[in-house]
């Protein structure tokens, strides 16, 4: 069966029509894959018991983002047994519901940090940030000792909490009021360690408790 040339020609000779049809077909994939996620994102709710970051940890989160830790560290344990053996139960969306921006990351030069909280002592974290190679010989992480000389900016912290409240984090007026007192005299190093030490503990989804038993094997 031969199909006449005229339909083909009609599209080929009208660049505006060719452009519109091309754009329409290229958008089909995006419409199918991306738009439902807008709806799905709104349906992810914080699991019971998971609260937004405390003022101190939120300041630490800011230090983490500010210094680009996500460029080398992911916070996303995938559903693969060699990952769960090393890092723990796989990450679920609920656990990062208060992360703005989310820190899942896609690059691991260093290890995943989704459940690093409590794995090391505060002293270790401090020593490791000051001089990573003094505790892990083969580490290629940069030194962050200068964080000890930088104070936390309490003013932006309050603004940040107000902005996050507009986006749905249930901060009370009192918490925002008290935020500067919570970080008073603390260095960026202190709050970063506080942030790291809560990862995977303060935001643990109850669904993962049951998974742990499965995942935690020899």
């Amino acid at each position: 069966m031969k199909i006449p040339f005229k339909y083909f020609e009609a599209i080929e000779k009208r660049t505006w029509l060719l452009g519109i049809l091309t754009a329409a077909f290229l958008s089909l994939g995006g419409l199918a894959e991306i738009t439902p996620l807008f709806a799905a994102a709104n349906s992810v709710k914080a699991p019971e018991g998971v609260k937004p970051y405390s003022a101190e940890r939120l300041a630490g989160f800011e230090v983490y983002v500010h210094n680009g830790c996500y460029l080398c560290h992911s916070q996303m344990i995938r559903h693969l047994s060699f990952e769960t053996q090393r890092y723990g139960a796989p990450s679920v969306a609920e656990e990062s519901v208060y992360d703005r921006p989310m820190q899942w990351g896609s690059k691991r030069t260093g290890p995943d940090l989704a459940r690093v909280g409590g794995k090391y002592s505060d002293d270790w974290q401090r020593q490791h940030l000051i001089d990573p190679r003094s505790v892990v010989h083969e580490s290629n992480m940069p030194k962050y000792g200068w964080l000890e000389d930088k104070e936390v900016d309490a003013k932006t912290l309050q603004n940040r909490m107000r902005a996050l409240r507009k986006l749905g984090a249930p901060y009370t007026d009192e918490e925002i009021e008290n935020a500067p007192a919570k970080v008073e005299g603390k260095t960026q190093m202190d709050v970063l360690i506080a942030y790291l030490q809560g990862l995977g503990i303060d935001n643990k989804a109850p669904a993962n408790e049951t998974q742990d038993k499965e995942v935690n094997h020899l």
């Binding site: 031969k2 199909i3 040339f5 339909y7 083909f8 419409l31 199918a32 439902p36």
Partner: peptide, 26 residues
Amino acid sequence: WVMALVVINYTTILFLFIWASRVDIP
């Protein structure tokens, strides 16, 4: 929504694949 888009996408491209190969270009 996803099903409709998948069907439209798949069938249209399959149709174009067959159709374009049969156009009688002078």
